[in-house]
Amino acid sequence: MKETEIHPAVASAQPYQLAEREEDTGLLFESEEARDRLRKVLSRYPVKRAALGPLLNYAREKRGWVSVEAMEEIAEQLELTPAYVRSVATFYTMYNLHPLGRHLIQVCTCIACHLNRADDVFERFLDETGTRPGEISEDGRFTVMEVECLGACGFATAVQINDEYFEGVTPEKVVEILEGLD
């Protein structure tokens, strides 16, 4: 689907592709596409402020993370204070308030995965990428983090890499998964 064909009902819920993000240059809401999305999102809620979550998601969708400048822009668009936007953005875990590697690897170590060797899977990802939790690998490709339950507990260990799920991951499968990423 081309960006311009997004139906307003789903404009606020576009899954992101971290790997295809645009260069972090210039203002977020300068492009026609962004203004179109903004219009569509605003048309779905009775109050402007409700578009905050969707716009933070949009910023992440385009850039892979949400910068202070992006938050200021969003604040301006929605007539909110930058402080308010930050207070909301910092509440959630998924707005990525720092730059990340091209592939964000999130290993669920929550209880059901924990019972199925998730801690070993997590360690293995760190070892193979040569990073500590949350760091960007030297080649810029990877960031590895722990995450709480991903809702795939029956298929433990669950790992989310950008917008894709990997299920039934064992430490032995880690290298193969990494080799499949660019």
């Binding site: 995450v147 991903l150 989310q160």
Partner: peptide, 20 residues
């Protein structure tokens, strides 16, 4: 929909668009 559910959100978005 919880933010982590990217794959099913795509499915749902397609269905909603079709239904509209």
């Amino acid at each position: 929909v919880r933010g982590e559910y990217f794959p099913v959100t795509r499915t749902l978005n397609t269905a909603v668009t079709e239904a509209y």
